[in-house]
């Protein structure tokens, strides 16, 4: 499924891009825990989205495929037991005087019971989770 969103951050693009190298900063994101970098250079963390009805911590693996002044591409894999979410995330940055306008476009594949049992709610939940973690991460950068 394709999801999109947009938000504004007071941080400039450089600060946002710098987050990739600052695990201690990412650790401050409220929905992220146990942030670390694995041997392949990917970021691993436990992500607990607030949009779910009960706490559902997902193990996430984030690979930054491209990062530039105007856009970035991330590959994100999240899993919790039998449910997996694969996200190809594209970020577009629009630098403004007040900060950065961030547009995101996600190609999402949900697998396991999340795709079947959760098929009626998964779109909204994944959309909310992506939007939430991106906003919170951008807020940390600011």
């Amino acid at each position: 499924m394709k999801l999109t969103g947009q938000f504004s951050s007071p941080a400039d693009v450089a600060k946002l891009l710098a987050l990739d190298g600052q695990l201690d900063q990412l650790e401050r994101v409220p929905s992220l825990d146990d942030v670390r970098r694995d041997s392949s250079g990917r970021i691993r963390a436990i992500f607990t989205p607030r949009a779910t009805f009960v706490p559902m911590p997902f193990a996430v693996v984030i690979a930054v495929e491209h990062a530039g002044q105007s856009d970035a591409a991330l590959k994100v894999h999240a899993s919790r037991g039998p449910t997996a979410v694969d996200v190809q995330l594209k970020l577009e940055f629009d630098q403004r005087d007040s900060g950065t306008s961030v547009s995101w476009h996600a190609e999402v594949a949900v697998r396991g019971p999340g795709a079947s049992v959760g098929q009626r709610v998964v779109r909204d939940l994944v959309s909310a989770a992506i939007d939430e973690v991106l906003r919170e991460t951008a807020a940390v950068a600011a």
Binding site: A109, V110, R111, G112, P113, A115, S116, V117, Q119
Partner: peptide
């Protein structure tokens, strides 16, 4: 199943 091999009917709701 959908094209990704995911079962569409995971419980009695579907």
């Amino acid at each position: 199943y959908d094209e990704n091999g995911q079962l569409r009917a995971g419980n009695f709701y579907d």
